[in-house]
């Protein structure tokens, strides 16, 4: 049996080193030659801490002392000890005590885990790439959502988002028995503003109107650009007409101020029509049509007032 043991140790794919209690190397297998780049002939009889200078540290000496006296095994990980045998290999080191005929030898097993490190490093790179791609996708999703649901010029909701919320709010109003307001807003003489000050200024005025409506309404109200110069405002959870009046008064106050845009003094005039669920209809089409109708009445009245003035 004894005669085959050296042959077995020579075949093992682990660096096997046997040392005495005072660190002298008595065996150095071929795999250890490969790991360290040092031939058995040049290291036998030498001190292991001289051949592997990374072991020239207090923790190694106290581990050897404890192992030799108490005999409990020791483990040094490749992660904590980066260059145990060479620059190119990452190895775990296991140390055990072997006692034969009253003589104590220390068995050092150097287990090559370089491939593990490479594989984990590759996986971390993939995870990092995936995480980067994921955050890019999330950003793009946000952009797509913005394009799909928000008006490019004014930044307020578009019809698609309005339809989504109008359906939802109408169902809630029906369940809870609350009112739902639809406010149709039209910028009077917008064509004249475009013709007089140019389309660029006209676009900016449209954006100012959208801001005016957003500032005058509540947090949960939805301001939507419905068409060229038309806005629809969805007013959920209206409990009494006073709730609506408060909003209408804020719009009225804000719109009376003439605005300065691109150096021009432009006086805004808005026509507003409002319909309420359930008084003016039970479907979205009915309620929007009614608000539109009231808006045209308001527009007509304001034209008449202007003509009379």
């Amino acid at each position: 049996m004894d005669s085959i043991l050296p042959g077995v140790l020579n075949c093992i794919n682990e660096g096997i080193v046997i040392i005495t209690e005072d660190l002298e190397i008595t065996y150095w297998n071929p795999f250890m030659e490969k790991l360290s780049g040092k031939w058995s002939g040049e290291v036998l009889g030498q001190k292991v801490d001289q051949i592997l200078p990374s072991l020239c540290r207090p923790f190694f000496y106290s581990a050897v002392k404890r192992l030799a006296t108490v005999g409990n095994p020791v483990f040094f990980s490749a992660a904590m000890h980066r260059k145990l045998v060479s620059q190119d290999h990452r190895v775990n080191l296991k140390m055990n005590r072997v006692s034969v005929d009253g003589k104590v030898a220390l068995l050092l097993e150097f287990i090559d885990v370089t491939n593990q490190f490479q594989r984990i490093s590759q996986l971390r790179d993939y995870v990092s790439q995936l995480s980067h791609l994921n955050s890019q996708l999330k950003q793009k999703e946000k952009v797509i959502e913005k394009l799909a649901y928000y008006d490019k010029l004014t930044g307020v909701a578009n019809r698609a988002l309005f339809d989504k919320f109008a359906d939802k709010y109408l169902s809630i109003a029906k369940q809870r028995g609350t009112m739902l307001g639809f406010m149709f807003v039209d910028v009077n003489e917008f064509k004249l503003i475009n013709d007089t000050y140019g389309h660029n200024t006209g676009d900016k005025v449209m954006t100012r109107v959208a801001s005016l409506l957003t500032e005058s309404t509540r947090k949960n109200d939805i301001v939507c650009r419905y068409g060229g110069d038309e806005f629809l405002v969805l007013l959920p959870d209206i409990r009494t007409y006073k709730d609506y009046q408060a909003i209408a008064e804020r719009i009225e106050t804000n719109k009376k101020q003439c605005i300065v845009q691109d150096g021009y003094n432009i006086c805004l005039s808005l026509s507003i029509g409002i319909s309420f669920y359930p008084d003016d209809g039970a479907t979205l089409d009915d309620l929007i049509a009614k608000a539109d109708e009231y808006m045209y009445v308001n527009k007509h009245e304001s034209r008449e007032r202007q003509d009379n003035m």
Partner: peptide
Amino acid sequence: TDIDFDTIKEIGN
């Protein structure tokens, strides 16, 4: 990972 486990194995030891 196995590297994490080996690190804790050393500390545990």
